[in-house]
Design a protein around this nucleic acid. Structure first.
Lengths: 332, 332
DNA sequence: CAATGTCTGGCAAACGATTGCCACCCGCCG
DNA sequence: CGGCGGGTGGCAATCGTTTGCCAGACATTG
């Protein structure tokens, strides 16, 4: 059968010192005579000892664990984020727990409640929870939000900036009427983008027609594509790549040539954007970096103990990647 | 500042009972007078109490945590797996920790060592560790392997079966010389597939030429495509979809028409396989189900306490999804 | 009325690690 | 020779929860 893992007591016994000494020898370099410390470390190695997370957590208050809370693990947008947080946490020796709330506010709150006692902090990617709640929670658990600043803090991906680049790109190709297939009402990012597009449209003297909201999924693409076509636009910006994929399929099915009759721009540059045909012109978002950054920020506030109200704000730039789904406007 | 989360002691005090009673009221239905229990539960709810994971773990030995250990989070193959384990664990009330070993055997072992004290078990997806080690570890920590049986136990995706279907498909299209662009030597799955293909080739009277090994990544696709072309084959089976994507790109770049001059079959049907053009004919693997299954199996052995040597073996069927990257053979 | 059981609820001992505080051993200086 | 201080290492409390065991209350039965 499976015998118990060695404990600090075993290590102490094996090296002939007290438990406290063993503990210090392993985690408080300098506090213990180097000679003794070496003996302890050797014993620990020989026994294959690893400090037990629960014991440590109980007595020190630090769990060595950070959670990433996402609304939907299967969305490729979050793959990049996961990768980033994973790398950052791994490097810092933290354990990475993954929570999928399946878009449910309640699940999100439940997760937070449980994390409060079992994690040192959490990265909330595109949280669904209301601002007030987020603020309240952040005083109970170090939190860093992604793509949804709370109290002016958090990591944000500047998709509005990218969207404007996309608009400029289309305008320069002669498009004068451009559709924006928007995302969920609850998306903070979407609202910001609408505003940025409105302003840019005036400046560029093009017309932007806002469509939607659409679910940020491939399945919603058909409806979005039909609406975009119907709107008389010659180019369309999609809320995200998934939606753009769906639109591409729909245009293909309806015999609308992309980019001949309709230019399509996605957002995020997720896995697959360069795989579809035509390859998708899209606003590239530094997903992995964003995850990494968020985790780093969180780690910093965790050990600086400065969850100060002026938590850091970090905006990551995006840029337009031009591929084959956009081209010169052709009058309809 | 952040005030401490309420403890069982607070709940007990608030409801005028002893800590032990409070504990039982919350987790041992029936053991305590229902009236008292209700009082306790109300107090707990009012205080927003949640049992602390570390305390519980220390005293009961159960951490309520299960880890998924993958060699590379950014591989879309594992996205599906993650999704499955996540769903299963969530449903069972377990916490999901994600460990990326970055293909490193040492990282894998390090992870296992730490998990031993901080998790109730682990799902090892495509572990790099040697069999002996895996066997040894499994006596210290409940383990379920995915796509790599140990001691005849684990969850396995029957890709050889799918590969044979693919071969039949190609054979029926008139292909007589078919290449197999193999994966890493360390892949158990790859070895199995080679054997299955060899046997099927004899039966179907076609010739299979084995190429590789190639890294299961897009970047390796160019080399694989060139080798396949060079081999004189008219169809090629790729170790996985990523490799197939890379091959498709390369064939495109070299002006080799797919499926006109070369048929390509992938494996796994990961996200993107139907996005790429031509849409990829591939062996569809039930990734999410596999992850779910593995987690369920693990959970079962965890609470049945039966890590018996005859751990369960489960083979999930695959099937060929025919899309546009395969077609009739044309003589070269 | 005594003996026996059944419910309830509390006491206290774990679980594994950390850490404040104290004790001891030395060497050194005055 | 006494006092002082730095360097080491041990004692014991503490963190939050679970659980074996016991004790009282009350009901049931012979």
């Amino acid at each position: 059968m499976t015998d118990k893992p060695p404990t600090l007591r075993d290590v102490a016994a094996a090296s002939g010192v007290a438990i406290s000494t063993a503990s210090r020898a392993l985690s408080r370099p300098g506090r213990i005579n180097e000679e003794t410390a070496v003996r302890v470390r050797e014993a620990a190695a020989a026994l294959g000892y690893t400090v037990g997370a629960s014991g440590r957590a109980l007595s020190s208050g630090k769990t060595g664990t950070v959670a990433l809370v996402v609304p939907d693990v299967s969305n490729p947008f979050f793959f990049g984020i996961v990768r980033g947080t994973q790398a950052a946490l791994r490097a810092a020796g933290y354990t990475h727990v993954l929570v999928d709330t399946e878009e449910s506010v309640q699940a999100e709150e439940r997760a937070l409640r449980m994390l409060r006692t079992s994690a040192d902090g959490a990265v909330l990617a595109a949280p669904r929870l209301g601002d007030e709640w987020l603020v309240a929670w952040s005083s109970a658990l170090p939190l860093v939000t992604l793509n949804r600043p709370v109290n002016g803090a958090g990591v944000v991906i500047d998709t509005p900036g990218g969207a404007v680049q996309a608009l400029e790109h289309l305008a320069s190709l002669g498009h004068e009427r451009i559709a924006y297939a928007g995302g969920p009402r609850t998306s903070w990012s979407d609202g910001r983008r609408r505003n940025a597009l409105r302003a840019a449209a005036r400046r560029l003297r093009v017309e932007v027609v806002v469509l939607g909201p659409y679910a940020p999924q491939r399945e919603a693409g058909a409806a979005a594509a039909d609406a975009a076509w119907q709107s008389g636009a010659t180019g369309v910006l999609a809320f995200n790549d998934l939606l753009a994929f769906g639109m591409l399929e729909r245009f293909g099915a309806r015999g609308v040539d992309v980019p001949g009759q309709m230019s399509v721009v996605g957002c995020d540059d997720v896995f697959g954007a360069d795989l579809v045909r035509p390859a998708l012109t899209t606003v590239s978002a530094p997903l992995e970096r964003a995850g990494h950054r968020a985790a780093d920020l969180l780690l910093a506030t965790i050990d600086r103990r400065s969850p100060g109200p002026a938590g850091a704000y970090d905006e990551l730039p995006t840029h337009l990647v031009v591929r084959d789904s956009t081209g010169p406007a052709t009058p309809r």
